[in-house]
Design a protein around this nucleic acid. Structure first.
Length: 275
DNA sequence: GTTAATACCTGTTCGC
DNA sequence: TGCGAACAGGTATTAA
């Protein structure tokens, strides 16, 4: 379930092998992921040098030497597999294969095909249909308590739904939404517009903390961000409330973690210490 | 304009 | 043991 920390870790792993190198060979093994590949996708990528790989929200942005960028989203089951040389046997759902001039092979594998890839002019990235309107990066200076409070002002939905909204803050998914609210001591059911002042400050801080810790865990638990099987970016998590239904609250409150459904998706929280 | 529900997709888990 | 239902979830689209 790639959220911001996983995408960040994948992007760093990709940077290591792609930056400065040409894409000698490009192959798509089907015509679409979530959407069709753009026209001339393979031809436009082949021979390009990758200048920089970075992340925007949950998107991976690989800037190319022709002024365009490869924009990629992992959806919920997307994986990047890196190997030296092309594997003799491809795995099911290996949809895109990139080979660098150094012989490193990157496979984009996505069973559920909620992922996507597109090509966009670097200068127009922020105007791209999928990027336009996305809120501030939570780890940057442009995200803070007052800015979060302003984004939540007047919002009548729950705070959980609000921080999942990419327009409010970029990159927070279902798992870290629960984790951040737990850290901040805020009930996921609280109405978004009531999270102001000190509460907003606490929540902004909690969002930064859970994301930063997850990124650090990814960096420290993986050598060069690549696992033994070549997969980039995934690592052992230590969640405090997510998927912990029925377990005692990790704090000292003596409460029990509950699971509720909000907007059709699971939320985990401690009803005793989250208000 | 805002919010909620639904569709997309398929591997895995759970209950009967 | 086998089968079907439920579930996972990011984002666009449709409905309310």
């Amino acid at each position: 379930m790639p959220e911001l920390p996983e995408v960040e870790t994948v992007a760093r792993g990709l940077a290591k092998r792609l930056e400065g190198h040409r894409l000698a060979k490009v192959e798509t093994r089907r015509g679409d992921l979530r959407w069709p590949f753009p026209k001339g996708f393979v031809k436009r990528l082949t021979g390009r040098r990758v200048l920089k790989v970075r992340r925007r929200a949950k998107y991976i942005v690989a800037e190319l030497d022709d002024g365009n960028a490869l924009l990629a989203h992992l959806g919920m089951s997307g994986r990047m597999l890196l190997s030296k040389g092309r594997p003799e046997i491809l795995e099911p759902h290996d949809h895109v294969i990139l080979e660098t001039d150094e012989g490193w092979v990157l496979r984009f594998n996505d069973a559920r095909r909620f992922g996507m890839m597109d090509l966009v002019a670097i200068a127009k990235l922020e105007q791209h249909k999928l990027i336009r309107g996305i809120g501030p990066e939570p780890l940057g200076n442009e995200f803070s308590g007052p800015i979060l409070a302003a984004a939540l002002k007047g919002k009548k939905t729950s705070i959980k739904a609000a921080i999942l909204d990419q327009k409010v803050v970029a990159g927070v998914g279902n798992i870290y939404a629960s984790e951040a609210l737990y850290r901040a001591g805020i009930s996921p059911k609280r109405l978004a517009y009531t999270v102001q002042g000190d509460r907003a400050e606490k929540l902004a801080h909690a969002i930064k903390a859970v994301l930063n810790e997850a990124i650090a865990a990814g960096g420290s638990s993986l050598r060069d961000y690549v696992q033994a099987d070549g997969e980039l970016g995934y690592f052992q998590h230590h969640w405090r409330v997510y998927d912990k239904e029925g377990q005692p609250c990790p704090g000292k409150c003596g409460g029990t973690i509950r699971r509720i459904t909000q907007g059709g998706r699971s939320t985990f929280y401690c009803p005793k210490c989250q208000r």
